[in-house]
Every structure is written in C-alpha cells, then in structure tokens.
Amino acid sequence: MGKKLGPKIAVWKFASCDGCQLSLLDCEDELLSLAAVIRIAYFPEATSAELAPPYDISLVEGSITTAHDSARIQQVRESSQLLVAMGACATAGGIQALRNFSHVEEFAAKVYAHPEYLEHRSIDLAHSPPALRAAGDPLCGQDRLSGAPGILNRATAIAEHVPVDYELRGCPINKRQLLEVLNALLNGRRPEIPTHSLCLECKLQGVSCVMVSHGIPCLGPVTQAGCGALCPAYQRGCYGCFGPSESPNTAALSEALLQIGWQRADVMRAFRSFNAAAAAFRQAGEAYAR
C-alpha cells in the first residue's frame, strides 16, 4: 500500500508557557497513529527538522504582546491554509492580558533594572522560523522597531490580528479536544467542540454541583465546557480556564457568588485570571472592580 503524504502541520509559539503545544506531545497513546497520518513541518518543542511553507494546518499558541509578534502572526496566517488558535492566551490574551487593565511601564519599571532594554532589543534572524525567513521577516535584524515600542500595551488574542478558523479554549487546552479538531480536519468533518456551560459536563459525569451542595463558589455556569469538569470532580469550584460559555450570565452568577460569601473584590479576581480579557469576563471583572 503506497503511503499517502499527510497534511503538513506547524506549531507556533507566541507569548505563552508552552503548555498547550505540549498537549500535542501529551497525546501519548495516540501520538504514533497521529504521526502516521500527519507531517510535522515545524514544531521546535518536538523536533529540529523543518519543512518549508506553506502549511496545511497551523496550531498557534500564545497571545500577541510585542510588535514583532503582531507582524509574525501575519506571516503565519499567510503561510497556512487553516489556522487553529489554541489555549486561553491565543483565544483571549491569557494571563498576560492582565496588563490590559494596568500600565505596562509600571510593571516593567518594577521588574527590570533597565526597562529600556525591552524597547531596544535586537531580533536575530536565526531565531525567526523558516516561514518567516523565507518570506523575509520585516522585523529581522532591526535594532529598534520603527515608531512602535517593542512591548505592546495590550496582550491580545490571535483573532484580533488575523482570521482564525478554529479556536480551542483552555488553560491549558484539553488534548482530547486538540485530537478531535485534528481528527475532524483529517476526515473532512465538523469538530465536536461544545460551547455550552461546564454544568452539562458535570452532570454527564454524575458530579454533583459544588455550589449547591457545598456552597463552593464556582464559575462553571458561565464557563465553556471542555476540561472534563476537572475541578468540580474534586469538589473545587471552576476557575474559568475555558473562558466564557456561549451565553454567559455573569451578572446573575456574580450576585449568587456574593450571596454565598464572596466580596466584590473576590468576584473581580475570579473573572480576572486566564481569560481576563475575554469579552464577558472582562466586563464582569470591570463591573466588580468599581
């Protein structure tokens, strides 16, 4: 039987912790069968071997936090047939989007002895991925980004910069959902990625509601399913890692959270985590920041 060449897959990192792209390597049981049907074209976490662009599927992790990245994501988009944004950083800006509610200069001054270095770093051509080298990275070799500061004031989702074909939520993503998207794309069918609340996932697994039976504050009713109800299964409230569900009523949930003992600041902090900049959570956080 002649071996069919599988689709070329590239894995890109922007501002992120690498946890989501490592989910691909976490697919231990399925990794060999996956490797048999796809070609890894660019995935520095897994292999130093590279295939030239274009790519059939690009998996993009991380948010856009620098001017360099905002240019680089354009190149990634141009070299990819399908672009899948994966994880809270790529779909909502991630934990680093907390900067959106504050001033980057203040953080930088506190953390770095010489914050001006952040503005004046050199970008080495060798560190640009092959797609960008081939396309001539507009930022490579520049000492200073003309006109724009190197660090952007806001950390933003990939979809704010380029059209995104699929989004996988989570901090980190669920490897089952990643496999489902790849599987669906390989087989020309629609991925089954529900957008409803986490509550359904708890109930399907027979996990009783931690909020109702223990008075534990939980973001599940406004959070998108997908994690497998990890925290409620261990009698912890949901932290909202998968971001807002399709139709979240954060105002009504916030009221209920106050009634079971939370203060306004607790509500604000709950919404200001991995998905702080996702629209519904951002609004809820803002409402309780006042």
């Binding site: 399925e30 790849l182 599987n183 669906a184 089954e192 109930k203 509601c209």
Partner: peptide, 27 residues
C-alpha cells in the same frame, strides 16, 4: 435576568429526555 442558561435544571430533571447526536471517527 436571573437565569444562568447553564442547563442544570434540565440535567437534573427526571423527565427531560433530550439528547444530541455527534459523529466521530478514528484518525
């Protein structure tokens, strides 16, 4: 205004019978 739209009521209801169908494949 109060409803979370979370679906808990339907999940715990002993008469709610609705199901959704999903098609999956192997790799």
């Amino acid at each position: 205004e109060r409803c979370l739209g979370c679906a808990n009521c339907t999940m715990v209801c002993p008469t709610c019978f609705c199901t959704t169908l999903s098609d999956t494949t192997n790799l």
